[in-house]
Structure formats: C-alpha cells, structure tokens
Design a protein around this nucleic acid. Sequence first.
DNA 1: ATTATGTGTTTAAACGATTAAGCATTTACC
DNA 2: GGTAAATGCTTAATCGTTTAAACACATAAT
Lengths: 345, 345
Amino acid sequence: MKKTSLKDIAQQAGVSTALVSYVLNGKEKETRVGEAIAQKIRQIAKELNYQPNHLAKSLRSGKTYTIGLIIADISNPFFANIARVVEDEAKKNGYTVIIGSCDEHAEKSWDLVNVLINRQVDGFIIVSCEGSENQVHYLKERNIPFVLLDRHFPEIQTDFVATNNYKASYDAGVHLIESGYSRIGIMAYKSNMYHMEERVRGLQHALRDNNIDFNDAWLKEVNFETMDSEVRTAIDEVLASDQRVEAMIFATYGLAINALKYINELRLKVPSDLAIVSFGQAEVFDLYYCPITYVRQPLEMLGKTSVEFLLKKLKNPDEGMKQILMEAKLIPRDSSKAKKPVSKG
Amino acid sequence: MKKTSLKDIAQQAGVSTALVSYVLNGKEKETRVGEAIAQKIRQIAKELNYQPNHLAKSLRSGKTYTIGLIIADISNPFFANIARVVEDEAKKNGYTVIIGSCDEHAEKSWDLVNVLINRQVDGFIIVSCEGSENQVHYLKERNIPFVLLDRHFPEIQTDFVATNNYKASYDAGVHLIESGYSRIGIMAYKSNMYHMEERVRGLQHALRDNNIDFNDAWLKEVNFETMDSEVRTAIDEVLASDQRVEAMIFATYGLAINALKYINELRLKVPSDLAIVSFGQAEVFDLYYCPITYVRQPLEMLGKTSVEFLLKKLKNPDEGMKQILMEAKLIPRDSSKAKKPVSKG
DNA sequence: ATTATGTGTTTAAACGATTAAGCATTTACC
DNA sequence: GGTAAATGCTTAATCGTTTAAACACATAAT
C-alpha cells in the first residue's frame, strides 16, 4: 500500500495536481480556486490521510527545514542538555535537528559536516572541537549558514553564542580567594581552544589582581582521550608539590568527575583537603556528599539564542554578523566553603 | 555559487548525466563505460568537489538511509547513552539518525511519528511511552518497519529488544534479602507499562519465594510529571508506616535521584537508615558518599541489537519477527551492604 | 461588437538523481 | 557478405512536489 501523493488526490477529485497543491498549501485565495472544488480536495486529502513528502518539497524548494547540530562531546551532560534545548527550540519553529557528536575529534567533525551537507541541511550549529578551524573557513567560503555555540575562534569572524569564560573563571577565582584560599590551581584540557585558555587566564588574573603569584605547577593540562589516567597523575602532583594547592578549579565536567572519583579513592575530604569549583552542571554536583560549587552557564539561553541567530540568518542571509557573550553564574556550595583561618607560620 | 550537480559534470565532460551517474556509482563495468571517459568524469567530479544530493537520491530510490529514534525521556542518562549507541551503530552502516524525545507523553510521540514519517525515515526504533499502543498498531498496519527498544507491549506482536526486567528485579530482591533486609519496598512510575509491572512483580516474587509477605504499602507508584513532590511524600510514607521499610528498590534513575536528594535533606544514612538498589546507571551512583547498588542494563547490546534488527528488516522486510530479552546484571555496592544482625524482639 | 477584466483550471518545467530502453558503431562469426 | 554479438553512449521517464505561464470561459466596460 503506497503512500498517497498529490497525484492520487488529484485523480480522485478529477483535477490537476496543481490545484491540489494550491489548496493544501492554503493558496486558494491567491490562485483563485473554486470553493466547491477546494472543499472536495480537502475532504479527499483527509480521507486518504495525505502526508506531503518532505523530500520532494525540499528538492523543489532547496530548503529542508533541517539543522545540523555538531557537538564536540555529547557525553558531557552540559552539551547533552544544550542539544535538547536546541532541538526543542528548532521544533517550535518547524525545524528538525540532526545531531552528531565528534567526540573532540576534528576528523569526525569533518565527516559530520560532509554527511550533513549531503543531507542538505539548511544550516549548522556547531560546538567546535580543537583543530576544526578549516571547517569553519570552509563553511564561510561555501556560504553555508552556521552559528558557533559555546566555543568560538576569536581570529575567525563568525556568528557565535558563547559564555564569558574569562569572567566566569575570574569570578570563581575571586570566590575562592574570598573564602580564604590562596594556593588555587586549575585543571583544563591540553588545548589551544579559546574557551579553555580563557578559563585559565581568568583564574590567573583573579590571583594577580589579589596579589597572589600563580605557580605554573598549579596549572594542569590533560589530554581528553587519556583523561582517566592523567587526571590521577595531575591530582597527585598538585597535592604533592611543595606548593600544594588548597583549591582547584576544574575547567570541565569530565575533569571534575574523574578527579572526584580519585579523590574519593584517596579518602580526601572536600573541601578541607581540597576545595573545588567546577565548570558544567549536573546532578552529581548536588548529590555529592559535599555539594560542589559550580559555574552555571546559561544553558537555555545559549541554546535558544543559537537557534534564533541561525534561523534569522536563514531568513535573511545578508543580515549582519551576530556575536554574543553571555554571563555565567557561580553557584556557591559546600565544596568551596570558607576556610577556617589558620595562624600563619 | 550553486552546488555542483551531475549536470554540471556532464556538461564539462561533454557527456550525458547518465554516464556520470554510472561512473560515480561504480557501475562502469556493468554499463560498459569507456575507460577514458570514466577517468575524465572522475577527474572533473573531484575538481568540482561533487557531493551527491541525498534528497534527489532518496526521492528516486524511496530510501533515505535515515532512522527515526523516538525516546521516551532523553533526560534519563540511560536513554541518552542508548541514543548514542544507536547513533554510532547506525552511522557505521551508513544511516543517519533523527532523535526525538516525547518526554513520556503519548501525543508528543504521535507528533514525532508523523513528522518523521513525513521526513521519509526508512524505519523507527522506539522506546515507547505509556498510551502509545495505537502508534505501534499504526506502524504495523502501514507496514512501516520498526523495532521497540527497552519497552514493549506483550499483547502486541512486534519486533523488540528489551531487558528481562522481571529477572533483574527478582535478583535485586534476592540480593537485598541475602543482605539481611526483609521489609523491602519498591518505587515505580504509576503506569501500566509492562516493563514497570515486571519490575514490581520481580521483587514481589523474590519476597514470596523467600516467605516474606509483600505489604502493599511498600509499593509506591508516583506520577512522572509530578515526581519531584510525590517522591518525597512516598519516602515519608514508607519510612513512617508501622511496617517501615528497610530497603527500597527504585525502578528508574529519575526516581532514585529525587529520592536521594530528599534522603540527604532528611539527613538519613544509606544504607543503615535505608538500603537502596536502583535501576539505571549514571556517574551519580559512583560518586554518592555511599556508592549505589544498581541494575546494569546491557546498554550497548540493547542499542546495537535494535539497530541490527531494524537494518535486517529494512533489507528483507519478510524476515521473521525478532524478539529478544537481555539479562541485566546487579552491581552490588555499599548502598545495599549486608545489614548488621539485630536481635529480634 | 469589440476589448478588457476576472475567474477557474490545466500544462509543463523544474529540483537532482537513477536506470530501462534505445541507438549507433564496431567486432566476431559462419 | 550477412547476421549476431559486443561496445559505448544517449534519451527520456520517474520519484512527489511547486509554480509561472497558458488557456478557456464568463462577465463587464467602452
């Protein structure tokens, strides 16, 4: 039993497919279709449970009403959630989203871009991974609409929606300082992505502005792929050094989780043995015995705005470049509780 | 700058589009294309960076190489992970996945089914929600290939891939009994979905087989939408009753999370005040101060097998019905640690 | 009576690919 | 030399829509 097409309806009604198309697209007025025949067409369409073929529509119109969403790491709940927001927002506007995760690999990301271009997506929303600048350039050259989400490349002029990571990290640093910590480290991915660098820089400047010298041993950069083991080593090191850190900022959710697991194994107490602030947000942070202070990124807003920007661009390709940095909010919890003052020396 | 099409290549090469199509689809042998011209065509295709238009291909062939994945609740990390597995597995086979979450609402699920049918997906993988039987019947009638994942309707003959929930819950019950607990409750969604009922039944039979009378007050069924508040009430009740439970099985991840939050607020200790076993799996369970015993469902296998079943069906629609129940594994942790014996009376 | 205007409908091309069928031409065979 | 087979390529229909243009009437205006 084949799907019913315009032709089927046309045949039953004894008219041409053109009329059927006009009526079912609500163009009866402009195209002056007779009221009687319009009724009949609608009636038959309902009886046959007509559902238009999106492929044909898209082929004809050149618009698929589909957005390609490329996410650097969908296992990160922050990104998983942002994907949901994007999807919901897109659906509200009649768009379908095809999601792909590149797991922080630029080649995978290339594949995805190509697959999705073949599928004729109207545009992209991309959480870029390291080394994917060429892809951004490619999309620009080919004039394919896209918006970068959460991560962007300051040296490439593009639309983007991101968090003010510098400020977020600066605030986190100040918060820890005000809570009485001064030897504050940060763990980040080994990466030259701007958002990572900003998170590191934010803390460094917070310390500098409070007259604390940042010790390079306090910065721990680990590789994404080998995170599990490297995090352990890193923790060992920052705790062992003669300049042992008292507090640590984790630049991503994944780092924090791995670190917390290890810290548990070591039977260290948070925050007395190590105070913690983490980027990202997840239920884990609430349920940890010592709830984790975290940087809450404006997830909903980021997702919604990225869709909004993209759809505007799709409607009017000549519209100007849109860039926005949103503010994150530090949510103080027990893991960064004020330190009990200790007499010096 | 338009995308290059077959026609463009044909023009440049001075041949018909048919030849180009043959060559680029590797059919030069069967269709006896001259070697010289084949070379030329490939050359030009490369120069123009030709990417075939999937829409046109699909329209012609009636196959989109797209799978619709409908998930009952994507905010559940178990489902989020299974979605990843499905996506990866599909991609390996050249399929693209369009994911939609119906948030446990049957109407949303209907919408998704229709949207995806319009998008001409080749088939569906569905984690059904309550009240969506009509949709399953609809797909069967319309002869649209689909596989039910994780949840199925025993009264409807369909392909499905699911967990043996009865056994999983039975095992959980036995484990708790062996750990010295006897007043064991279970919290589930108020639902007549088979997988839920099986989880309840599993515990009940485990108790019966160990000569423990199941007290109906130990069964707490809460509504998905109002879970936040109902869980609290339910916990209050099972702890207050004269037949206070000592242990509780949570039939879903969401229920466990909510309960744990409340238990923390009440400053109750796990497992001494209340032992816990939960379905689902997530990092939270590892990081909780008292790691949570949980039922590990064969996530990878479930996802992969569902794709496998569907793709087989797509290749050969007449293949027989495929149904499989996979075994879950109980992962014992501290939250269900053996109880210290207490003298009776 | 002729032209203009309005009304209701059909025709046919187009989107970009696939593919059965047809058409030349060359080579093989008896 | 005549038929058959092999070779290399083109034509044109098709998938299901959309939509500009053409067409055929009826009614109104001059």
